[in-house]
């Protein structure tokens, strides 16, 4: 129960960050050139769909198809926001990130899927990998915000 609350806290933190950067990109999207749009769309759709599908699987175990669709939808939305060359790239990277996040969430819930030895399954805690991933996500969003400025 405490682990679920911790994951809920992490996901709300990342969701707030994502909301802020979505509105920033929406305000400034006319200033970008093509290459920059491609890089931003790839980075943000891949990491966002990866992280949020992992949280989704950890919170609601068993809904694999819904989380894949959720990842593809995140990529499609960011591509639609940033327009022309980025839309296909956003859909593709969102689907890839969604598949990876689903797999990581399923392995974290049931370590026997990966043949991790039983003695170390108790030592493997559920919250270390999501915590590291969410810290990394916050760093990447900060660096995107910095790259808008230069």
């Amino acid at each position: 129960m405490r682990k679920l609350l911790f994951i809920l806290l992490l996901s709300s933190w990342n969701g707030a960050e994502l909301y802020r950067i979505y509105h920033l990109l929406k305000k400034k999207r006319l200033l970008f050139d093509d290459h920059f749009t491609l890089v931003i769309c790839m980075t943000i759709s891949m990491l966002t769909s990866f992280l949020f599908t992992m949280y989704f699987i950890l919170l609601f175990p068993g809904f694999y198809g819904a989380s894949l669709l959720f990842g593809a939808g995140v990529g499609w939305n960011f591509g639609k926001l940033l327009r022309n060359p980025a839309q296909l790239n956003g859909l593709y990277n969102g689907a890839i990130g969604g598949a990876m996040g689903t797999m990581l969430g399923a392995v974290l819930q049931n370590p026997a899927l990966c043949r991790i030895p039983v003695e170390s399954a108790a030592a493997m805690d559920l919250s270390a990998i999501p915590f590291a991933a969410s810290c990394f996500y916050a760093c990447i969003l900060l660096s995107i915000r910095y790259s808008l400025r230069i």
């Binding site: 290459h35 920059f36 890089v39 931003i40 790839m42 980075t43 891949m46 990491l47 990866f50 890839i96 990130g97 990876m100 797999m103 990581l104 392995v107 990966c114 043949r115 991790i116 990998i129 991933a133 990394f136 990447i140 660096s143 995107i144 790259s147 230069i150």
Partner: peptide, 25 residues
């Protein structure tokens, strides 16, 4: 470039999350 750095960091992180899962099966 800075944008190149951003793309490389994201791709490396994503593959690095998946690789131990591949190695242990």
């Amino acid at each position: 470039d800075y944008q190149t750095c951003l793309a490389g960091v994201t791709n490396g992180f994503m593959v690095g999350i998946m690789a131990p899962m591949l190695g242990s099966v």
